[in-house]
Design a protein around this nucleic acid. Structure first.
Lengths: 178, 178
DNA sequence: GTCTATAAAGCGATAGAC
DNA sequence: GTCTATCGCTTTATAGAC
């Protein structure tokens, strides 16, 4: 039978996929599991997505789109603003972010390694400038890496509490010994 | 034909496995690939290891053993000593560490999630004490998380350079705003 | 200790009916 | 839009010869 709003199924597939990808890893989640959870059969998925990879890509896209926009639009400014805005972006997409962190091999699978490194590079350059010495780069890595870890580790806590403490610690790491 | 030192093969299997696990991910590495690289057949692996999981476990064990010993033997002390010693331990096992970070799903596969969280908990408690408020815990997470990120990101650089800058940034994060 | 051969299962994907 | 049926492939693992 035909559903009232056909494209609802597509969104429900993405929902279930995101949940299973997050809970048990992308590599360990099969199309059969996704379809069974939805009460449909595996081939039915192929009406909505060309391939398993296309489904995965569509789940990640909201994050990559926002990262792309962030890296493109950002101008140098106070580090605390940069770190705070980056925190907000990452916090908003923390589910997808945890999904990726738990299974980094999907980045190479989707040819996203280069873009990810480039975004991180952009953020670090905005924080410490293009000519900073290696020591400052390492400080920035502790700052950005530690901030990201907090998003994954404290995903269940109130955003504002985590943000305040994490950003102030990241700022301190950034300016360590100066 | 029989080899001169039979148990050499076991060590060579572990070497090749560690290299392939690191380069292309644990989940994406099959026993067929490992055996082909060694010039033997897949069933031959089963003479040396009971299962694929046993092989993976044996590759990770040097790290888990050292972490266990670290958590068991450590007493509270200056944070900079704790962070420096933790850096040394992690740096020594950075290959296996990168392997795990690239594919965190193996932690649950090997039922290691609980132990990993427990080690991290031990380290954080050694750093800030058992009764510290949430804000201090988040600072410690930035410190420990950022430090770990540096080991993975700067694995190719001289250990002493990375250690000095990473530990001083982690220390600053730990004491942020105090 | 290593081989050939094979079992048993799961995967992504497609064909074609309805 | 969803179904049944199936193809082609890969995986872990075992049996038994040498």
């Amino acid at each position: 039978m035909t559903m009232a709003r056909p494209s609802d199924t597509k969104a429900r597939i993405q929902e279930v996929a995101r949940e299973l990808f997050l809970r048990q890893g992308v590599t360990n989640t099969s199309l059969r599991q996704i379809s069974e959870r939805l009460g449909i059969t595996k081939p039915a998925l192929y009406y909505h997505f060309d391939s398993r990879e296309a489904l995965l890509r569509s789940v990640i896209q909201p994050l990559t789109d926002d990262l792309e926009a962030f890296a493109a639009a950002r101008r140098p400014g106070p580090p605390e603003d940069l770190l705070a805005d980056y925190f907000d972006l990452a916090w908003q997409h923390r589910d997808v972010l945890m999904m990726i962190v738990a299974d980094l091999s999907i980045l190479s699978e989707l040819d996203l390694v280069g873009r990810m490194l480039s975004w991180r590079e952009t953020l670090v350059t905005l924080l410490i400038g293009p000519t900073a010495p290696q020591r400052a780069r390492i400080h920035a890595t502790v700052a950005v890496g530690g901030l990201s870890d907090c998003i994954v580790e404290y995903a269940q806590l109130p955003a504002e509490d985590v943000k305040k403490a994490a950003v102030e610690a990241a700022l301190a790491a950034l300016h360590a010994g100066s």
